[in-house]
Nucleic acid binder design. Sequence first.
DNA 1: CTGTTAGCGCATTCAC
DNA 2: GTGAATGCGCTAACAG
Lengths: 350, 350
Amino acid sequence: MNVPNRSLPTLREVAEAAGVSVGTASKVLSGSSDVSAHRAQSVREAAQRLGYRRNSLAADLRRSRPKSIGFVLPDLTNAFFVDLARLLENEALKNGYRLILAHADEDPERELERIRFVLSRQIAGMIVIPCRGFGQATNEIRAAGVPLVMADRVDETFPEHTITIDSYRAAYEGTQHLLALGHRRIAFLANTLELVNSKARADGYADAMREADLSQEVDVVRCGMTAEEIHVTTLRALHRSRRPTALFAGGNVTTLGALRAMRDADLRIPEDLSLLSFDDAPWMSVLRPCLTTIRQPVEDIGHSIWQLMWALINDEQRDTVHLKLKAELQVRESTAPPAHSSAPPGSTVV
Amino acid sequence: MNVPNRSLPTLREVAEAAGVSVGTASKVLSGSSDVSAHRAQSVREAAQRLGYRRNSLAADLRRSRPKSIGFVLPDLTNAFFVDLARLLENEALKNGYRLILAHADEDPERELERIRFVLSRQIAGMIVIPCRGFGQATNEIRAAGVPLVMADRVDETFPEHTITIDSYRAAYEGTQHLLALGHRRIAFLANTLELVNSKARADGYADAMREADLSQEVDVVRCGMTAEEIHVTTLRALHRSRRPTALFAGGNVTTLGALRAMRDADLRIPEDLSLLSFDDAPWMSVLRPCLTTIRQPVEDIGHSIWQLMWALINDEQRDTVHLKLKAELQVRESTAPPAHSSAPPGSTVV
DNA sequence: CTGTTAGCGCATTCAC
DNA sequence: GTGAATGCGCTAACAG
C-alpha cells in the first residue's frame, strides 16, 4: 500500500490523463483564464486524481526569477530578529512571495555560504541583517543583479539601501535619562564595536557623557555576542573597584547577559544598580522590577523593509534609500537615582 | 559601473571561455577528479574571472534529489524549537546537507502550505514538529516518497518515525515532586489537549494526582498557544475561589504566560505559589528564584533526529522508529511546600 | 580523460 | 483557445 519511490506525476502525465497538451495543462494549473471551462475542469480532475504537485524547482528555473526573497539573519536567539522574520514573512505572503530564511549564526563564513546558496536559487530579492565581518557578500549580491535591502546593523554610510533605527540618538537620549537621574558612572555594554549600530549606540552614549562633562567616566565595555560571553564580561566589569551605578545594555541579548551578571554579583535593581536596556523582548515582561527599555518599532521596520523591497522588485525605486526610524525610551522601574554618589557631582574633573 | 540586469554567466559560457566542453566544466566545478589538472585549472580560472555561480535550481532539478532537508517548526518564539533548528542545521551541514526552515506559526493551514512548498522542492527528507491540526500533510509527504521524521509533539501511536521525550513520565514525576512537597491543589497548564505531548503531560499529571487520592483536585487548564492567551487564562485560574498552591506549566511559552499572570496577581514564588516549568529557556536563568524545571535533552533529541534521518536517506532503516528520550527534573527554588493548606490533607475527599 | 547528447519538469512563445 | 516546439542551466551517460 505504501509505494516507496514512485515519483510524483508530472505535468505531462496529467495532461495525457486529461487528454490535453502540456501547454494547456500548464495554463490551467497556473490559473490562466484562457482555457475553456470544460478542459480546465478535466485537467483539474486529472491533477486531483493523480495527486499532481507542481515541481517548483522546474517552474522557478523556467521563470528565472522565483517569487521568493532571501532573508539572512544573524541570530535566531534574538527576539528582535525573529519578530522581524515573522513580520516579513507575512508581508511577503500578502504579495505572493515567500521568505527563504537563512541563519548565519553570527558567523561571517557561514553567512557568506548562506548568501551564496540563497543567491544560487535565483531569488527575486535579498534582505540582510549582516553579522560582524560582513564583507564581499555585497558585491556578490550586486553582481547577481538582485535587489538588496540591508537592515538593523547598518547605517547611511552603506552604499546599499538601508533601514534601521537612529541608534545614536536613542542611545544619546537613553544616557541623558540616566544622567538626569543623577548617575555619573554609567557603563555601556556593547556586544562589539565592529557592528555599526553598536558603534553608533556607544557613540551616542559617549557623546551624552561628554556633554555632561563626564568624558573621564566614559566606559564602553565590549562584551561579546552571546549571552554567556556577555555574562562573564559584565560580571568582571561589576567587580571593578569603582563599580558603575548604572548599566546601559546595547541589545536584548546583552541585557540577558547583564542580568545574569547582576544576579551573580547579587546586585538589586535599581537600588544597587540601574539597568537600561536597548531593545526589549517578550521575557522581559516577567521581570520585577520592569525594565526601562528603548523600544524599537519592529512593526514599522518590518513594514518599511518590505515596502522598499517591493518597490525594488517592481523597479519603482532607483535612488538609494537610507531610512532611520525612531526608537522610543520607555521609562519603567529599573532605572532610578543612584543610592549614594561616591563623589558629589561638582567634583567631577572637566 | 553597476550593470543592473546582466544575468549571471552560465556553465556553458565558462566552458567556452576555458575552451572546454560543458561536461568537463561541470565535472571540475562539482569536484570530480576525472579531469586533467591543466584543464581543471583553466576552468576554475574562467569561472573566477566571469564570476560564475552555479544555478542550484537547475542542478537540483537535474539531480532530482537535492541535498536539502525540510524542517517544519510551529513556533519561532519557542526557544526549544529554535535550539533544535540550530542543532539540526549543524548536524546536516556535517553531512553536506542543508536545512530549509519552514515556519508554520502554529497555523495548520500555513503549515500545510509550507509543507507543500517544501515538498515541491524535491527535498531529500523532511523533519516536522507538527502543530495543532496537523493532518493530511503526512499522506502528501508519504506520497512524495520523502523520508519523514516527526518530533516532539508526537507519540508512538503515529505511523511515522517519531522522536520525542517521555512526556507522560516526566509530568508524572514532576507532579510527584510537587505532591511530595505537600501540595494538593496543583493546576496543570496545558496549551491545548489537541497536541499529543501536551495531552500526555496532562495525563501524567492527572494520574499522579489520582494515585495520591486527589482525583477531585485534578485541574487541567487549557490555556492557549501564545504567551498572551496563556497570561489571560492563567490569571483567571488564579482568581478562582480555591486558588491552587502550585502551578505546573506544560512548556516554556506556558511558563512565560504563567509568570505574567503571577506578576499581575501579585503572587510571590514560591511563598504564595509554587511553579514548576516543563522545559526551560535561556531567559529563565535570570529569574529569582530560579525555576524548578523539567529539562529536555535538546542535544540528544537533535542528534537522534539527524541520526535517524541520515539512516533513512541512505535507506538503512526500514522499521518504524519510535524513540522516547528521558527528561530530567531539575529541582531549584520555585517549588516549595505550600504556605498553609486551607484544608488539612486528610479532609480531601477520596 | 574528454566531448556530445539527452533530458530533469515546466512555462512560454508561436503558429494554427 | 489550443497544441507543438523550444529552452531555463545543469548533470549524467555514453561514445570516443
